[in-house]
Amino acid sequence: MLRREFQATDESVMVALGAGLAAASEPGLVIYLRGELGMGKTTFSRGFIQSLGHRGPVKSPTYTLVEPYTFEALEVFHFDLYRLGDPAELEFMGIRDYFGGDSICLIEWPERGIGVLPPADLEISIEPAGTGRLLQVRAGSVVGDRVAQRWQPGN
């Protein structure tokens, strides 16, 4: 499966990378966002969601676990599992209902949902790189491979 790397020198580049991925995405996509606190996972998600037409703030759903965004023919679910105590809690919230052919799921801290979450089509790991960030992208499915090939930074 395809692997790519992108450099984000500042917040605006991280937002542009999120927007570029949104432009390349298709319904049914599951995206894992990995990285320590402060690496830019939510900033990336903001670029993704706002580029689709959302005109409000995009905040990390740390306490609610999921924030839905509805667009004309697509739903985007932004998950932040940082405060998740046990992956079984995801079953109680009906996690499986969020994953379908007409939605895209962005999942921060996916390692907290091991055993319950579906596999990722794309895994994006964000690490420090000098004063910016390095995004390492790995496709985990045919769909993820196709989207990663189309993804152009800054779209």
Rank of each mutant, 00 (worst) to 15 (best):
A22M: 10
Y32Q: 03
F71P: 05
H54Q: 09
A73I: 00
P61K: 01
L135I: 02
S141D: 13
T9Y: 10
V58I: 13
Y98H: 12
D145A: 15
R83V: 12
S125M: 02
M1V: 14
G28P: 10
A8M: 02
G132T: 07
F6S: 00
P119M: 08
I114W: 13
I126C: 05
E127F: 13
L106C: 09
G101Y: 09
L65P: 00
E11L: 12
P27M: 13
T62H: 04
V143E: 06
V116R: 09
A88K: 10
P128I: 10
V116Q: 07
G130A: 11
M93L: 15
G140R: 11
V58N: 11
W151V: 05
G28E: 08
R138Y: 01
G28Q: 12
F99S: 03
F99M: 07
R55W: 03
L81M: 07
H54F: 13
A16K: 02
R133P: 00
V147P: 00
G85H: 09
I126Q: 02
P61N: 06
G115F: 11
F92T: 04
G154N: 06
E5T: 15
G115I: 12
R4V: 05
L84C: 07
D121Y: 04
H78Y: 06
Q7M: 12
S45A: 15
G140Q: 08
V13K: 10
R146I: 04
S12W: 10
H78C: 03
R83I: 11
G18W: 03
A148M: 12
P57L: 12
T64R: 03
S45T: 14
G130N: 07
G100Q: 10
A16N: 01
